Simulated scan of single mutants.
Amino acid sequence: MDVLSDVIASIRIGRPRSSHITWHAPWAQSFPSAPGSAGFQVILQGSCWLIPDDGEPIPLSVGDVVFFPHGHGCVMADSPSTPVPQIDCDPGEEAALFGSASMAGPGAATVTLCGGYRLDDGRTHPILRDLPDMIHLPARLGHHQELRAAIDLLAAEIANPRLGADTVVASLLDMLLLFILRAYINAEPERCTVSGWSAALADPGISAALDAVHRDPAHPWTVQSLADLAGLSRAAFSRRFSVLVGQPPLGYLTWWRLAIAARLLRSTDAPLSEVATRVGYGSEFAFANAFKREHGLAPGRFRRESCPLVVGVGERVATLS
Rank of each mutant, 00 (worst) to 15 (best):
131 L>E: 03
98 F>D: 07
218 A>R: 05
159 A>W: 06
156 A>R: 03
259 A>T: 14
161 P>E: 07
60 L>S: 08
192 C>A: 11
99 G>L: 01
256 W>E: 11
97 L>H: 03
172 L>F: 08
235 A>R: 09
110 T>W: 07
226 L>A: 02
114 C>K: 09
60 L>C: 02
90 D>V: 01
239 R>G: 15
68 F>R: 14
96 A>D: 13
243 V>W: 13
319 T>M: 14
17 R>E: 08
217 P>V: 11
27 W>Q: 02
310 V>P: 00
89 C>P: 00
2 D>A: 04
217 P>E: 06
292 K>L: 07
237 F>H: 07
27 W>Y: 08
176 L>G: 11
301 R>E: 12
242 S>C: 08
173 L>G: 08
264 L>Q: 04
140 R>Y: 00
30 S>Q: 15
154 L>I: 06
89 C>H: 15
65 V>N: 04
130 D>V: 03
235 A>P: 05
178 L>C: 10
49 W>A: 11
37 S>Q: 06
191 R>M: 03
68 F>M: 15
248 P>R: 12
17 R>C: 12
205 G>C: 02
131 L>T: 03
299 P>N: 09
257 R>K: 06
61 S>W: 05
56 E>Y: 13
229 L>P: 02
318 A>H: 10
42 V>G: 00
22 T>H: 08
39 G>S: 15
66 V>C: 10
13 I>D: 08
191 R>E: 07
104 A>Q: 12
320 L>D: 09
162 R>H: 10
174 D>G: 13
130 D>K: 03
71 G>A: 01
202 A>V: 06
193 T>C: 10
272 L>C: 11
134 M>K: 10
309 L>P: 14
46 G>K: 07
186 N>L: 06
122 G>C: 00
190 E>C: 14
23 W>I: 06
168 V>A: 04
82 T>Q: 01
71 G>W: 07
36 G>S: 06
236 A>F: 03
207 S>G: 12
179 F>N: 14
292 K>V: 00
11 I>D: 03
237 F>C: 01
141 L>N: 04
36 G>W: 04
260 I>F: 10
234 R>D: 10
23 W>D: 05
214 H>I: 11
73 G>I: 02
52 P>W: 05
292 K>D: 08
152 D>F: 12
296 G>D: 03
119 L>C: 04
108 A>E: 15
275 V>N: 05
319 T>I: 13
150 A>C: 15
305 E>W: 10
279 V>M: 05
17 R>Q: 12
